[in-house]
Design a protein around this nucleic acid. Structure first.
Length: 276
DNA sequence: GAACAGGTGAAGT
DNA sequence: ACTTCACCTGTT
């Protein structure tokens, strides 16, 4: 993939490993709209695919210091797919999932997003987060496009349960509020946690109310760049049951991407399309 | 109207 | 250590 910096952002050429619909639709993130506009760490961008070229419009001064890392553009996904494909069960899933990238999201946003995700579908998760950002985030604008930033812990910590009721997040609201207060008063330092080795970081996350193995691993993978974390949700359990007779293999430091490929493959019926 | 949903924690075995 | 169930809310 070739990256060309421009005055309005950047262009990616040869985009087999950057497919916006897959990246934004695979359930790892909730703040990118179908028009390609998204917001991360308070910065807006628009991602548009035109044939073999992906245009990413953003504040140009943020391209190198922020968006390159956010979109994980320094990593060679094709090489990783080849490594994963040494496992015969992964060949089809990796090919099917080509174009997915794992975004480097903020720890706090990932924590709240995946607290909300339990027993919820993607549209509802998005809806709850959208309400939260509209109510408590700051309005941000880029070239006439407006969005609301994800509110920081301090802003949420200042709320009562009643003030958070409009989110309609149900029993998850108390988890969000508690985590916000822990983060705001310094008891929980997510940036420090993200610098710990995966197992130690997971141990800290598991002490939080409402955080079990699945949510912890989502935060580790999507919010802390821990690629050896492998979230096991119901879809992954189905995939492991189907392809590995219930015993999940250990893909080591690329387990997170293996998870994404298997997840996307089984959830979108990739294994059925092949036999048809 | 009951059953269910990308999960967790408490209480039971 | 493993199983069962309640938990908010919206959808089917």
């Amino acid at each position: 993939m070739e990256i060309r910096k421009t005055e309005w952002g950047a262009e990616l050429h040869g985009c087999a490993d950057f497919v916006p619909e897959k990246i934004f639709g695979c359930g790892q993130c909730f703040r990118w709209d179908t028009d390609g506009v998204g917001i991360a760490r308070g910065h807006i961008a628009r991602v548009v695919k035109q044939g073999d070229v992906v245009r990413i419009e953003c504040a140009p001064e943020l391209w190198e210091p922020f968006w390159v890392d956010y979109f994980d553009l320094r990593r060679d996904y094709q090489a990783i797919r080849e490594t994963l494909s040494r496992d015969p069960h992964m060949v089809a899933a990796a090919a099917f999932g080509a174009g997915i990238r794992i975004l480097r999201q903020e720890p706090w946003e990932a924590l709240v997003s995946f607290l909300i995700s339990q027993c919820n579908h993607i549209p509802r998760i998005r809806g709850i987060i959208e309400i939260m950002c509209r109510m408590f985030g700051d309005e941000v604008e880029l070239c006439g496009v407006k969005r609301f930033s994800f509110p920081d812990p301090e802003r949420i910590a200042a709320c009562t349960l009643e003030e958070l009721a409009p989110l309609r997040a149900g029993y998850r609201t108390k988890y969000i509020l508690k985590a916000a207060r822990q983060a705001a008063d310094g008891e929980l330092d997510l940036d420090a946690v993200s610098k710990l080795p995966t197992d130690e970081a997971r141990r800290v996350l598991l002490t939080l109310d409402g955080v079990g193995n699945k949510v912890a691993d989502c935060v580790l993978l999507f919010g802390m760049g821990k690629w050896d974390a492998c979230p096991m949700d119901v879809w992954m359990k189905r995939a492991v049951e189907k392809f590995y007779q219930g015993k999940a293999p250990d893909f080591g430091d690329i387990a997170g991407l293996a998870q994404q490929y298997l997840f996307h493959y089984i959830r979108n019926g990739g294994e059925k399309q092949e036999t048809e």
